[in-house]
């Protein structure tokens, strides 16, 4: 893992540098400190994998929506009122017993914010970014997901502005469950493609 968490005391130079940048941008009239607080709260509470889970649960229960989602992810996701920065064009890829999809951004850490929120630390970690394209089966096994040799692995490196969401397999045991119950089962990791959904 990286050294991202080693310097979190109040004298962290990055905290002091951030204060200086905040003073500069506030002085220039680009933002207020109160507006910063509001935006932070939105990312901590409203924008997150719950949006993606709603998309997945709807696709599991509505075959026509699923077809629209796989044909044009951006438009189908917008039907649920979800969109915004880092979701300008969305492609949804479907996991099946034959094909397993997993998402990465090797060049920075591009991630579909409107459906998944901000990326977890491991997604931004050099180990994930470097290794998942070279040895996806080994990396997935470290997440506890061992794929059958016959299952094809497709890694998607989001190197342009297109962002990807994995449509996980619906657990067989959930037959008859309603959309809201299903949405509660859908995890962030399954929508990145490093986990399956067990139920």
């Amino acid at each position: 893992m990286t050294h991202e968490h080693e310097h979190e005391h109040e004298h962290d130079p990055r905290a002091i540098r951030t204060e200086a940048l905040e003073r500069l941008l506030v002085d220039q009239g680009l933002i207020t400190s109160a507006a910063i607080d509001t935006i932070i709260e939105r990312y901590e509470t409203d924008v997150g994998p719950l949006n993606g889970a709603r998309v997945v649960a709807k696709a599991w229960t509505d075959p026509e929506y699923r077809a629209r989602l796989l044909a044009d992810g951006t438009t189908a996701i917008a039907e649920l009122g979800i969109g915004g920065p880092q979701g300008e064009k969305m492609v949804v890829v479907e996991n099946t017993p034959a094909v397993h999809n997993v998402i990465v951004c090797t060049l920075c850490s591009c991630y579909p914010w409107p459906v998944l929120g901000l990326p977890p630390a491991w997604y931004k970690d050099p180990a994930y970014r470097s290794r998942v394209v070279r040895e996806p089966r080994k990396v997935l096994s470290e997440f506890g997901l061992t794929l059958d040799d016959n299952t094809e692995v497709r890694v998607w490196d989001s190197s342009a502005e297109i962002r990807y969401l994995v449509l996980p397999e619906r657990p067989a045991s959930t037959t008859g469950a309603d959309e809201r119950t299903l949405a509660e089962l859908v995890t962030r990791d399954a929508m990145i493609g490093v986990a399956r959904i067990d139920a």
Binding site: E44, L118, P120, A121, A195
Partner: peptide, 25 residues
């Protein structure tokens, strides 16, 4: 260069106040 194993963990969106403010700024 980065051979570390991946270990899954749950976590907050931001680990420190400065991270959140640097993101917004």
């Amino acid at each position: 260069d980065f051979p570390a194993s991946l270990t899954e963990r749950d976590e907050k969106v931001f680990h420190a106040e400065w991270e959140a403010r640097a993101f917004v700024l």
